[in-house]
Design a binder for these strands. Structure first.
Lengths: 140, 140
DNA sequence: AATCGTATGCAACAGAGTTGCAAAATATTC
DNA sequence: GAATATTTTGCAACTCTGTTGCATACGATT
């Protein structure tokens, strides 16, 4: 576990520091996306706010994590899949926010629909966030 | 013009106040979406921050405007089309943010693609935000 | 182990967003 | 149309979020 985390940091030419290891570990051990506040107030750990901001920023720049937009000023962050490493962001997936458990997850395996644009418009990036109920919450 | 604004407010059972008229007028006379800061610092008008927050909140609740999510904590607001009045939000359109002029617009006439979800997942709302270049900026 | 470069944490700040409350404006009633 | 009731506004004060500069601490390199 330790080694995998260090390896990811090294692969992205980042110094392997205690904070970065701990924060990256949070992402690796959580299946859902995390908000800044989730990380800052994570039980058992007390991270300096500034360190969390800077770490998330560096991770996004390096393509280790990506942002998930939201309609209520609570941006979340999630791990990128392998082909995003080295700074190439190719987010051809969408995001699902469950209104039951609040969990945000990436749906990687479901094809991104192509959207038709008006004449002379060109698209760089398409963000899709779906709000609904996940299978776990539906059963309850 | 004045009468149309008052009519919209009255239709939503809101008192017709000076601030609400002015803010609603900003939306009616701007084709793009507006951020909180756009409204607060609008040239010629000085709105109290608190009033702007409360007005936008009420407008969203009543379905006069809707929010447009973003990946950088800068939520924008845009007018809803007619069938959204009376609080029924049926946003079956997507949003386009131009990286050239920064303008955010609603694309109402382009069909929303249906997205396939994992087994036992259900969707309430699909938010699509496309980043790209609009026709005006492309010509330059 | 010593040096170099980067990351961290603190302080201080700027901005975003919220709440309570008295004053002012709007709606309602007669 | 004036008086009353209701709602909205603006101010003050506050919390939370996010940023920057800088000295110290840490990790990488030799």
């Amino acid at each position: 576990m330790e080694s995998r985390i260090s390896e990811i940091l090294r692969r992205n030419r980042l110094s392997v520091t205690s904070s970065r290891q701990k924060i990256l570990n949070l992402f690796l051990s959580n299946s859902g996306a995390l908000a800044h506040a989730d990380i800052e107030h994570k039980a058992g750990e007390k991270f300096d706010r500034v360190t969390v901001y800077r770490t998330l920023q560096v991770f996004v720049e390096k393509g280790i994590i990506h942002t998930i937009p939201s309609g209520d000023n609570s941006i979340k962050y999630a791990l990128c899949k392998n082909d995003c490493f080295e700074g190439r962001h190719h987010d051809n997936h969408f995001h699902f926010v469950c209104s039951g458990c609040g969990k945000t997850e990436c749906l990687e395996d479901f094809i991104m629909p192509s959207v038709k644009l008006p004449r002379d418009y060109s698209a760089n990036n398409v963000e899709i966030v779906i709000n609904g109920v996940c299978s776990n919450c539906r059963k309850k």
